[in-house]
Amino acid sequence: MKNNQLRTIFIIAILVAGLVFALYISRRPQIIDKRALGTSEVDLVLVPTSGAITRGNLFSVDVAMKKTASRPIQVSGAESNLTVSSNLTVNTVVCLAPFDGLKVTTINGQQISILCTIPVNDSSKPPQTLATSNMPFARITLTVPSSAPTGSTATIQFTKTRVTEAGLPGQSPDVSTGGTNGSYLIVNPTATPTPTAIPTNTPTPIPTRTPTPTATRTPTPIPTNTPTPLPTNTPTPTRTPTPMPTRTPTPTSIPCPRGSYGNLDCSLNGCIDTADFELFRQAFGKAVSTLVIPLGQHTPDLLLDSSAIIDTGDFGVFSNNFGMCY
């Protein structure tokens, strides 16, 4: 009898735990392969998408986004992971204005990772309204090695995409497609013909009369006053700010990995990305007491200080961890 009771209690505990986990998953943003997750309202493209590239030369490709939906869409950031074929060498990756606020770009061999956002508090660079034309947010510079086989195809392929919609309170949805890949034909450099030299007549030199030099008077130098150097001020050393301790979040029944570092949407991978940036941007400058934090999200009040608003101190914690995961 006692064993039956223990078995019943154990089964009930498992069912309750499963129900709590299911409720948590249903109330929080889902972490799935971004190529399949976005609402497919904004396409990520490479500019140019195709064309001929010459062995031994540099060339650049912009990563851009364009709207495919009919409704108006504003965005605050975009990100992508790309794989470059082995017959290309990746040189540099940079974020382009106005998406040069928080920016993290990495190159690991043939793998590229890009995260670019607008500034958090710059009225000259607000969330951008997308059109059906391309809006670049990053630029990749590459080299075609001289050893690359002529006639071979070089490719740049999206492996992850995200375009974060702005202006929806408490939300940061991904509106991206899986991305449109690029394909390029490698060609030989065009040979430049050597021009034939045309002989020219050499003129016979005409002797010139050497003039008799006239003696000139050497002027007496006038002494000049040597200015007394003025003492220069010794620059005052710049103070190194003392870092403030980070706030320890109040424990909740819902786990939020790295929430105190800026993982505001509490994604299970603990990454601080453009989705978290949009949530932080919405709260920046607001009083902490006025914030309503949805279930499954972390407060943007990241720094333990005397300020009662979401300010540059909180942004310092967020920006230092932007683009980082476990």
Rank of each mutant, 00 (worst) to 15 (best):
N4D: 15
Q5F: 14
L6M: 12
I12Y: 03
L19I: 02
A22N: 02
R27H: 09
D33Y: 04
L46S: 08
A52Y: 05
T54C: 03
S60N: 10
D62N: 15
S70V: 09
P72N: 10
I73G: 01
T89E: 12
T92F: 05
T92H: 01
P98W: 00
Q111K: 11
I112N: 00
I114A: 00
L115H: 12
P119I: 13
N121T: 02
S123Y: 08
T129K: 08
M135E: 15
M135K: 15
T141H: 02
P145H: 08
K160Q: 14
L168H: 00
G170C: 01
G170A: 09
P173H: 02
D174E: 02
V175G: 08
I186C: 05
T190Q: 13
P195C: 09
P199C: 01
P205H: 09
R209V: 15
P211R: 05
P219F: 00
T224H: 11
T224I: 14
T226G: 05
T228Y: 03
T228K: 12
L230P: 04
T238K: 09
T240N: 12
P243Q: 14
T246H: 14
T250C: 04
P251N: 13
T252A: 10
T252N: 05
G259N: 09
G259D: 06
N263W: 02
I272H: 03
T274F: 02
E278W: 07
G285E: 00
K286P: 08
G296P: 04
T299C: 07
S307I: 11
I310S: 13
S319I: 02
M324L: 15
